[in-house]
Design a protein around this nucleic acid. Structure first.
Lengths: 144, 144
DNA sequence: CAGAATCCGTCTTGATACTG
DNA sequence: CAGTATCAAGACGGATTCTG
């Protein structure tokens, strides 16, 4: 008797990669996509191709270090194209590749979700924090 | 005189939250969603509600610490519901909330994207790595 | 302009050990 | 079972300096 159904085996054949598994390369990829700078840079480039300094301005709070590092990783993964115009001073433009564009709708939806559901999340956080206070701090505050 | 233009105020009215801005709470939320453990736990719970130890088994490589921490954050943000059955030993079940379910399709798409586009990304990485080698190491290897 | 390189303090991780 | 506590290692972030 097989441990997997035919349907399950078909699913595996389609996927081939399984991000749940630590050894699977797709897990590494998932990890590199699960990054706030990656999300923000990708969304920014999705709105319009940009030069290095413009990206920095569009995403207040990134350090040069993180911006450069993020762009390098994205370039290495084939999501972003870096093109240098050898003027003086040099001009460097970053654009999404076709692969990058295929990811954009997915990633930008997350950013949108975060922006749109902030109120619900806040409510949940307040409730959680109030209850934690009641659970742990109340005994010390009974007479306060 | 207002510090914001009318256009800016209109944009704010539409979005209210802007994840590009470091001070915006939605940016914190985005950052907490942009996490590999969050993605994997959410996907796992999307497939079926689970107990703590089952999650650990479904996601090989998570430390207890990270699993617990991730679950706590998700619970605080209202994405996950934690329910304790006071048996001996205790039984704890985790399920997605309605809010969590609203995020699930978005987040699971990322995991799928990573699994499905792994080949293209590999190709890109190989190309990048070969070129870096050529750019930086070749001069030292001319006669090798 | 678009970085690379370096120092350095802080925050996160992950492994290990212990608990009700 | 479902965690908590702890500690060392590494990643991250900021500021600064330098380059072509």
């Amino acid at each position: 008797m097989p441990t997997r159904t035919a349907a399950q085996r078909r699913t595996e054949a389609k996927h081939a990669y399984n991000a749940y598994l630590a050894q699977c390369p797709s897990r590494q990829l998932l990890a590199s996509l699960s990054d706030k700078w990656v999300t923000l840079v990708l969304c920014a480039l999705g709105e319009q191709e940009s030069r290095y300094s413009m990206l920095g301005r569009k995403i207040p709070g990134v350090s040069q270090k993180m911006l450069t590092q993020t762009l390098r990783t994205l370039e290495r993964n084939g999501l972003v194209q870096r093109s240098v115009t050898p003027t003086v001073p040099v001009r460097v433009d970053y654009t999404l590749t076709a692969l990058g564009h295929s990811l954009l709708p997915v990633i930008s939806t997350i950013k949108q979700w975060a922006e749109q559901h902030m109120p619900q999340v806040r409510t949940a956080q307040d409730r959680y924090d109030r209850h934690s206070q009641a659970d742990h701090a109340e005994p010390l505050r009974r007479l306060a």
